[in-house]
């Protein structure tokens, strides 16, 4: 048995090359580790049956903006899977690694599943955190990753802003609310996973703001009974876009594989797996199947609706001197 295994490991690489199955690199954001760990073997199987090629898929994870910058600076990713389109637009703006209209190449603006920002609180919810207002109260401590470096943090920021705009009106009122909320943030980690560690392992904060899938992962895998999930009255629709990085995929001769890798995310298997990891699937049948058990009803607004798109949101809120910087300099 052991000998066979050894033989197999010796044989696989040359065979793979003989079949033209080149490895592909998926550069992704911080909290998709568990999903792709399960998705990749499924796709490898599927692709083997379909094309006869045995491929390997390499993964890279980190704060989304950092990951996007790495690719823009020359990390030769075949596919990129981010949590906001801005981080893929960068690849067009710097170096034309893919076409400008990349979002039109796959259904649902190239985002095969969605998520939203929700709260995780400690057992029994001692600070009675029910909605966004409770996070901005004095004496409450909230852990959010840094919006400057993480898409996860950007969504939390925009979700709070969107809530305030709906409830109190726009402009200064929304800014005051978000300022109060961020004054309650004791640690700004650079990525979503770092924020999870701070909240769960270090015991900092009364609430953690992060993606629904991350919250459920913590609840189910990291000492679930110590935490409770809180769904606010309204939150932001997180659209996680994916794209083939044309320049590198062509250079590596992996375009067909890379394309299939992303399309498979939209298949029933891919969507089921997404639902299993608490990403909200786009496929309505699959969504309906899991909705009652996994995806509580929550009013969601998109970044396009409230902020007029990511470009605008980035300029007003996150660029130098934007509303986020003003929280700390005023």
């Amino acid at each position: 048995m052991l000998r066979n295994l050894l033989l197999a490991t010796l044989l696989i690489p040359p065979l793979a090359y003989a079949d033209g199955g080149k490895p592909i690199l998926n550069v992704s954001y911080d909290v998709t580790r568990e999903f792709f760990k399960e998705y990749n073997p499924k796709f490898v199987n599927y692709w083997q049956q379909k094309s006869g090629q045995t491929i390997t898929i390499n993964q890279s994870h980190g704060g989304s903006s950092k990951q996007a910058r790495a690719v823009a600076d020359g990390l030769e990713a075949d596919v990129i899977t981010m949590n906001q389109p801005g981080d893929i637009d960068i690849l067009y703006q710097r170096g034309k690694l893919l076409p400008k209209d990349w979002q039109k190449r796959l259904p649902h603006a190239s985002s095969p599943f969605t998520s939203t920002t929700v709260f995780l609180v400690r057992k029994g919810n001692p600070k009675k955190i029910k909605d966004w207002d409770d996070l901005a109260k004095p004496g409450v401590s909230v852990v959010i990753p840094n919006p400057k470096t993480s898409g996860n943090g950007k969504y939390s920021y925009l979700a709070a802003w969107g809530y305030a705009e709906k409830k109190y009106g726009g402009g200064d009122k929304a800014r005051d609310f978000v300022t109060k909320l961020f004054r309650n943030v004791p640690v700004l980690d650079t990525g979503g996973r770092g924020a999870t560690t701070t909240f769960v392992q270090r015991g900092i904060g009364d609430a953690l703001l992060t993606f629904e899938n991350e919250v459920q992962l913590i609840k189910n895998e990291l000492g679930g009974s110590d935490f409770e999930v809180v769904y606010p009255s309204v939150s932001v629709l997180v659209e996680a876009p994916v794209a083939v990085v044309d320049k590198y995929a062509d250079k590596h001769g992996t375009r067909a594989t890379a394309q299939a890798y992303l399309e498979y995310l939209y298949s029933d298997e891919g969507q089921e797996l997404a639902a299993k990891h608490y990403y909200r699937p786009r496929n309505e049948k699959v969504f309906a199947k899991y909705a009652a058990e996994r995806f509580p009803d929550i009013a969601l607004f998109s970044v396009d609706e409230v902020f007029g798109g990511w470009d605008k949101a980035q300029k007003i809120h996150f660029d130098n001197g934007g509303t986020f910087d003003q929280i700390y300099t005023k």
């Binding site: 903006s65 840094n146 650079t190 130098n320």
Partner: peptide
């Protein structure tokens, strides 16, 4: 410095 890099502000 890292934060600025991640915002793609290399000169800053």
């Amino acid at each position: 410095i890292i934060t600025k890099l991640e915002q793609h502000e290399y000169a800053g």
